[in-house]
Amino acid sequence: MLEVINVSYTYPSGDTALKNVSLKISDGELVAIMGPNGAGKSTLVKHFNGLLKPSKGKVLVDGVNTTNMTVAELSRKVGFVFQNADHQLFAETVEKEIEFTLKNLGLHENLEELKVKALEDFDLIKYRDKSPFSLSGGERKRVALASVLCANPKTIILDEPTAGQDLVQKNNLLELIRRFHSEGKTVVIVSHDVEFIVDINPRIITLVNGEILCDGDVQDVLANKMILEYSSLTPAQITEFAWRICEELKPLPNNIITVDQLIEALKTHIIGGSL
């Protein structure tokens, strides 16, 4: 469980990036953090594995104050995947990349087992002896994921996992997130990608100017004009389409967000006759 209690954070340069933020994420929850550039999203999630320690307030991971723990200690519980794979990869082979993490975290006993599992989970067995630098962008991303998640952390943080990714990569990621979720892991995603978030269907927290603006499910947040506006978000295309249909044609049920919901609504309310 992650608890953020009245946390403020000011960078040494003097920028206050978080102002009195409080929130609670229970085990097994799927959470997205959204909001404008510079809102403090990355700053917030860096508190979850102790990369940043609050200037004011406290952060508890499973009840333990992060101030008293090192990043290495927290990393066994909380895996943090950075946006850019190039910021993490350095070893001669994919296999060594994974071993690096496992050794750092002191998981020597079942190192072999965890390593093979990570290679399998991320479909990297055939690349195990290859240099990470010889792989394509999508493959490098998978190595980066494997190199953090091999330690089998209970909580997973993904900062902007979809930027510049194509559909195949996004779908892989989507599948992965669903799998983690079904395994009971806590997953926190920072993202600008409204359409991707709709597919994940998480609890959404929007952060604006270092403060939490709202906290609710996909319907509450992504189908609410006011909240979208204040969070610098745009509606998913389907939602916008449904709104326009309501304005120009016929009322539809509120909060339409997915393709299937819209088709359902169209069939019952608009084109029932033409079928």
Binding site: D166, V168, I238, L262, I271
Partner: peptide
């Protein structure tokens, strides 16, 4: 496998049905 906009996916599905 391009990311076909969802509005188009709606109409494609409607066509199929």
């Amino acid at each position: 496998g391009v990311n076909i906009p969802r509005l188009i996916r709606v109409f494609k599905k409607l066509k199929q049905s």
